[in-house]
Nucleic acid binder design. Sequence first.
DNA 1: GTTTATGCAAATTCTTTGCAATACT
DNA 2: AGTATTGCAAAGAATTTGCATAAAC
Lengths: 140, 140
Amino acid sequence: MIGNINQLLDNAGLRKTKGRETILQLLHTQNRPLSHQEIISRKSISKYDRVTIYRILETLQKVGLLHKILGSDGVWRFCTHKYTKRKKCGGNHIHFFCSECNQMSCMPEQSLPWINPPKGAKIISKQLVVHGVCANCLNF
Amino acid sequence: MIGNINQLLDNAGLRKTKGRETILQLLHTQNRPLSHQEIISRKSISKYDRVTIYRILETLQKVGLLHKILGSDGVWRFCTHKYTKRKKCGGNHIHFFCSECNQMSCMPEQSLPWINPPKGAKIISKQLVVHGVCANCLNF
DNA sequence: GTTTATGCAAATTCTTTGCAATACT
DNA sequence: AGTATTGCAAAGAATTTGCATAAAC
């Protein structure tokens, strides 16, 4: 698995550092997007400086190894691309945000709708965040 | 017009204050959602304290006179409901966000798609923000 | 007169910047 | 050895809280 991740960094032309590996590993293992705060409060990550985490997330996102989505709480969350088939998808799927536990999850089965751009405008990407209460939280 | 706005505040069970009236008036006149910063930099608003503006926006949004949407810059924007037919729509339409000028606009003609909730979850609302470059900015 | 909203000061939180020390190739 | 990344300190921005004053009912 680590070999795999190093490969990703290599292909992206980035140096292989412990921090980047650990974060990629974490997000790969996770099945939902994590915020900066969620990431830094993991035992495996907490030894790194917050600034470093900001920079790693920024870097990985820029080269396309991560994408970021905004929760309806205004906080960015990051996740890997493993839930989509295409390689450079840019996070092209719907996300669900639970307002009870503030956790976000991916809804990869449903695709984003086609949108007609405003007159003369160019569409770059779309973010559809569904806001609600997840199954877990509904039971309490 | 002011009479109209006072009516809205009244119906919502809120006291009629100059600040609330002015902000509602501004957003009613505007044809796009405005951020806290955009709002407070208006001449008619700048005399109020930033904290007051935060609280007014919060209050108006809570009683349903405004809704808020997040731009892909992570900043909340507020707008009235005048662009939708239904009274308590909760901002149920698509928004366009231009990453050049950072301005948001409404796309009221197109409606939000139907989404299947994750198993056992309850959907409360949906936010679809289309990210791109507006007609104006494309020409420069 | 009582209750609610506002203004001000200060605290808190989140994010960014600069630079020296360290790690990677 | 040379370059990119990290850690630390500090700056900056956005937002929230507490409380006294002022405005609305």
